[in-house]
Amino acid sequence: MAVVFKKTKGLTDAQTHYCPGCTHGIVHRLVGEVLEELGVLDKAIGVAPVGCSVLAYKYFNCDMHEAAHGRAPAVATGIKRVRPDNFVFTYQGDGDLASIGTAEIVHAAHRGEKISTIFINNAIYGMTGGQMAPTTLVGQKATTAPNGRDEAHCGKPIKMSELLATIDGAKFVERVTVTTPANVRKAKKAIKECFKLQLEGKGFGIVEVLSTCPTNWGYTPQEALKWLEENMIPYYPLGNFRKPEEVE
């Protein structure tokens, strides 16, 4: 009898605090699996954000650091420059990376910092109770937009991957999702490619993962995946926006 799937060594035994059906858990596992498969668990340093994944430092089985809201890329920059032989990644949500931390991520990419970023985009502020995020879709309801996001008042949602792909320093930019087993495998492939880029010393890489927030969206986990596929993917198209060979 051969074991075809078991828990990765990249995660600790701690049980996550995430709501049932939250896709943070899937992405945590993928990051853990990739760190283990690349053999960098002993030299990886992760930077946790503020948001639902604020406790990520308890879940990844490698050295972790906590950053102030949105400042994970700045903290990761410092760590990487002092310890260039370590593997440094940030794990951030959309309320962190696409809002208060926009300056940090844009300039870390612009400087071509040799760090990797996992960006969870679930189009809402999860931890604080479902407020509208810069990534909230037009018409999508949030506690601070009870009638749905109004484009005339708030503008359209920000597309971080497209934005970062215009920056020369960003060598790898890809948007994936985790709605089906096939999409989960594609997401893992993208994360692995992104992490390898850093190990090869090529520069900044980011993987944006379209995720669900069943609790704040007000759906069951299954309905949330369906809502993501029907509403988020048309606005946030999946795919690679930048690869190292295109840059060179």
């Binding site: 075809v4 799937f5 996550t16 858990g25 899937i26 087993p181 495998r185």
Partner: peptide, 20 residues
Amino acid sequence: IGCASCATMCPDVVITVERL
């Protein structure tokens, strides 16, 4: 059928899959 689709989607790493 031991495809591990369940384990691939599980957010809490509850599942171990073996093939006979």
